[in-house]
């Protein structure tokens, strides 16, 4: 009996509830997914083992390849534009004192908006009848045609990424500025004495010292770009003509429109393997002594 009431067992009883909930919601279905990706199940009837058939099929699937390519574009976009903007912005913010908090709140607030609300705002701004392009046209400025970029094949992916980026980049500003305030002021004074320009100070003092946070931000952008779903689904549902299809929407329509359980599990498994691969790269780099 005593083993059930030992200090160690009691400590584990405290952990058990959270483990139970998390296991049931995340771990168990993930394991099921790993098993189901090797079958051709469609949600009903018999489950047949088909080996890696689903994966061969995937690599031949035009729409899947398109979705992968769009996810790559998405990741590259988010690794450049929001990071550059946020770094500049955070650096400028550290140079001012008056109103700094107000600026920070302004930048951060969109991050707290629900995806559905950000989408609605920008859907209106780009609306073909009421939106900004139409309004400019009516004023005689014919720069942009009055069509919604969400409904054009050439622009839909970028338009969706823009909306998601608008919502997201303020988060980066806040984490960068937190990092910048941890930098020892004497380093800047030393740089001043050496006669460094502002850009040099940014490049050789700020950037190396916020490296842990900078690398962290790169990692979460890569990881968060893979399952991106809300914005695409709300704004375009992957269309028109698959021009904004990403992995998550591809999987979602395979799973819930066509009930291809095996096939969509295969996509999910690939997403999982990729994420774990990225996380372990950063883990290994940390082990190797990169301060990240």
């Amino acid at each position: 009996m005593s083993i059930f009431f030992s200090k160690n067992s009691i400590a584990w009883y405290f952990i058990l509830p959270v483990l139970a909930v998390h296991f049931m919601v995340v771990a168990l279905p993930s394991l099921l997914s790993l098993a189901l990706c090797l079958t051709d199940w469609n949600g009903f009837g018999k489950i047949n083992y088909v080996g890696f058939e689903n994966f061969y099929e995937l690599f031949d699937d035009r729409y899947f390849k398109k979705a992968v390519w769009h996810n790559i574009i998405w990741t590259c976009l988010f690794l450049t534009v929001p990071i550059a903007l946020a770094l500049t912005c955070a650096y400028l913010l550290t140079g001012i004192t008056k109103g700094q908090m107000l600026f920070r709140l302004c930048f951060f607030f969109p991050y707290m908006l629900a995806s559905i609300i950000s989408c609605q705002i920008w859907k209106y701004i780009f609306h073909p009848l009421y939106g900004l392009p139409a309004w400019l046209n009516s004023k005689g400025i014919d720069l942009i045609p009055a069509v919604s970029p969400f409904t054009m094949k050439e622009t839909s992916l970028y338009a969706v990424a823009f909306v998601d980026g608008w919502h997201f980049w303020g988060f980066l500003v806040v984490i960068y500025i937190t990092g910048m305030y941890q930098v020892d002021n004497s380093l800047y004074e030393a740089a001043d004495i050496e006669g460094a320009t502002k850009f040099q100070k940014f490049r050789f003092v700020t950037l190396p010292l916020i490296r842990p946070i900078f690398i962290f931000s790169i990692m979460i952008i890569i990881i968060w770009s893979i399952p991106t779903f809300d914005y695409v689904w709300i704004l375009t549902q992957g269309g028109p003509a698959y021009s904004s299809e990403v992995l998550a929407t591809n999987l979602y329509s395979q799973a819930f429109d066509r009930f291809n359980v095996g096939y969509s599990s295969a996509i999910g498994t690939l997403m999982f393997i990729y994420t774990i691969f990225i996380v372990s790269i950063f883990g290994v780099l940390r082990k190797l002594g990169w301060e990240i």
Binding site: A11, L19, S30, S33, L247
Partner: peptide, 29 residues
């Protein structure tokens, strides 16, 4: 508790699993 590091690693892996990986089996469950 002894072995709590294993649990922390479990949670860390847990947060990096994309939702799409488990949403369909969860739906069926």
């Amino acid at each position: 508790p002894r072995g709590s590091n294993a649990f922390l690693v479990y949670l860390l892996v847990g947060v990096s699993i994309p939702a799409q990986m488990f949403i369909l089996p969860l739906f069926l469950m």
